[in-house]
Design a protein around this nucleic acid. Sequence first.
DNA 1: CAGAAATACCTTGCACACGATGTAATCGTG
DNA 2: CACGATTACATCGTGTGCAAGGTATTTCTG
Lengths: 152, 152
Amino acid sequence: MPDEFQLDEQACFALYAASRAVTDAYRPLLGELGLTYPQYLVLLVLWESDARPVKEIGEALHLDYGTLSPLLKRLEANGLLTRARLPEDERTVVISLTEEGRFLRTRAAGVPSAIGCALGLDDASRRELITTLRRLTASATAYSLGGPDAQP
Amino acid sequence: MPDEFQLDEQACFALYAASRAVTDAYRPLLGELGLTYPQYLVLLVLWESDARPVKEIGEALHLDYGTLSPLLKRLEANGLLTRARLPEDERTVVISLTEEGRFLRTRAAGVPSAIGCALGLDDASRRELITTLRRLTASATAYSLGGPDAQP
DNA sequence: CAGAAATACCTTGCACACGATGTAATCGTG
DNA sequence: CACGATTACATCGTGTGCAAGGTATTTCTG
């Protein structure tokens, strides 16, 4: 019987390695734009719909405030976005793109297709991979929240 | 036509999110053993074959010295392994498990199956996922090394 | 065999990621 | 309406990851 500790048999390691390899592929492209991959993800969210509270960005990317707060501060320092308290609710901070932040989208126009090419996946296997990974993410998240033997 | 910037359509983000979700699932289990996920990966490598140079561990996990050196120092400080220069080649540092490091394997016996269960993948889709991810990793790595338009 | 190149590793600096803790604002309840 | 709970966010500490730069040891080359 196979060794359950065998690295090659573990989907988790394949996932971990693939994730870093893909981020590596992004690095030179995003470096041209002065961005890291997580910063690029934040911009994707904002390009899709601007002026959102930090909470929504965190939900979209599954990132907590401890990660987002300093990241957003760096993007603000680079002139890509602004932070403003909501008058109706002084607790929430709304993140809005600056003109420069909106313009960066045109400079990033080639990135998705370049990466799509780098991954070397046809459209069908890409969709299937996304489906599998989403199921896996949901399953792992449920496990984390509920614990190995959760009793509701 | 679909927006190429759409977060939901990007395999990269699914990968990034899944990788972190899986690491989250490991955290409580490994926390019991006083380990992080990358530290656990190093032990997997050493449990498979002990007394290896840092270079080999890095190749197995696709990690560089900048990550491994401090990580190995922490594992050494925790009494799980030792570092020794090779007499034949004073440049290389050989990492060997201590008695405690070897024993930890028995305490970690339940981890792989617990995670396997948490991911909720049957054996077939797990293997298929690993295959897809390995192709993807190879493709992304080749892209990173060769550049978008490499001319050998 | 001397000097150059390569190798193995280490350290530093920066940017995530996450747990834990703190704070101000709002909400819910009696 | 007082006051405890909740919410939204910030900060701090620790541990990765990676680029860049440094050192010591070996290997290669002329």
